[in-house]
Nucleic acid binder design. Structure first.
Lengths: 222, 222
DNA sequence: CAATTTTGATAGTATTACTATTATATTTGT
DNA sequence: ACAAATATAATAGTAATACTATCAAAATTG
């Protein structure tokens, strides 16, 4: 469907030097993603990443301002790629309900189909975003970073889903809120299923999660 | 309704020395809450708190292991107190739908009525939990802390709401997931309303948030 | 192949997140 | 009231974090 040289590029405010501009930059984001998945955002440091790819901290700081910007880069990479997935999923589908079903199908998929040859491992990326994405906005710099455009790709996806919801019921008052809630719930319910099972009902199983979200949204739009 | 000496006590795994056992301990949690609200979890340090209450770091470490345990203490304090609020709100109400309405009413209230004279400021506490509570579980220590009982009060509240949901529809498959989603959405949608408004629809306004959550849950239970 | 850019190596700073020790208050039991 | 026990303050110290700066070596590019 896409050429082999299909590439996801994120806005230049999300890095100092574009990591896709060099082999070293690519290994920074690839190994960084992997390290982030292994040890989590709190324990992740540029020092540890530098050691694991045999470079130095100062080199990493030439690509990213700090680890928060690095997470924001991955966050935007993820949502840029999800936008492609969502768009493909609903293209040529006329029934809004079927569109919603496919949207939710994409949302709950853990290892989405490869499109072209992507730089980052889709499965790892989904894992990291599931566990860490709330940390992109739950901090005191949120307004500043919002102004800098750090959340634009995420907002575009919320709006894309919101439009599908509105097709099902043009009078629904909270389409953006519902879209954002579906996304957040898809992450957190899976997380709860794995770590705090009393907070959910077997929603770490993809088909259950899909059923829950689909039922929730369809009923909300009645 | 309650005596003036009504007190919220949290499980002893959540502190080294009980802060309610001394004036100093009380000022640690009171000023700590205030500082956390002002500068956010990421910038909050025991050093800064020590300076603001004119004590030393070593003293703070005799009360709490680290700042994460301090946040967990506040988190449990909050949910212990919310359990009282929820329970009072539905006591003597027979209609499950009315119970749900009152549950959601409590959930979206920013400055709940004072019960007795509580140590911590309810408004500040709600603010801090709204902004920071996801950080209690989104980290690599979650399984360990879950075993230690750090999430018990939260789970009790999810189960309490879940039971009300089940009364409305005993066949609903995902009561815990819905309860947890309502709680999470109540926090994040208000946050989005204030900081990332394109992700929501004016849900920083309490009555809108209430309407959204009520509509969402009632329709899900059809 | 010279000029430019990128990276590596090294050093250094302020802050964070603690732990340890000891002296001085404060509280408690009798 | 006073000795004993406990809590707190003061101080010092460590390893790690989160950077910044400098300069030489390597790689790229024109």
């Amino acid at each position: 469907m896409f050429k082999d040289n299909f590439r996801i590029e994120v806005n230049s405010s999300l890095f100092i030097k574009n990591p896709t501009s060099s082999k070293l930059g690519e290994s920074i984001v690839k190994e960084g993603l992997s390290l982030l998945e292994n040890i989590g955002y709190e324990d992740f440091t540029f020092k540890k990443l530098a050691i694991s790819i045999q470079t130095t901290e100062s080199t990493l700081y030439r690509y990213f301002e700090n680890k928060h910007q690095f997470l924001m880069y991955l966050f935007n990479y993820y949502w840029t790629w999800m936008e492609v997935n969502f768009t493909m999923a609903i293209t040529n589908i006329s029934d809004p309900k079927e569109q919603l079903k496919r949207i939710i199908g994409v949302l709950v998929t853990q290892a989405p189909q490869k499109i072209g040859s992507l730089l980052l491992d889709e499965f790892l990326l989904k894992q990291v975003i599931t566990n860490e994405s709330s940390k992109t906005f739950l901090n005191k710099k949120v307004d500043e970073e919002n102004k800098a455009g750090y959340y634009l790709t995420f907002k575009r996806n919320v709006c894309l889903i919101s439009e599908v919801l509105l097709k099902m019921n043009p009078n629904y008052l909270y389409p953006n809120a519902l879209a954002a809630t579906l996304i957040e719930a898809s992450f957190h319910q899976r997380y709860f299923g794995l770590h705090l099972p009393r907070l959910t009902n077997e929603l770490h199983i993809t088909s259950n999660l899909e059923d829950f979200l689909l039922h929730l949204s369809i009923n909300a739009l009645i």
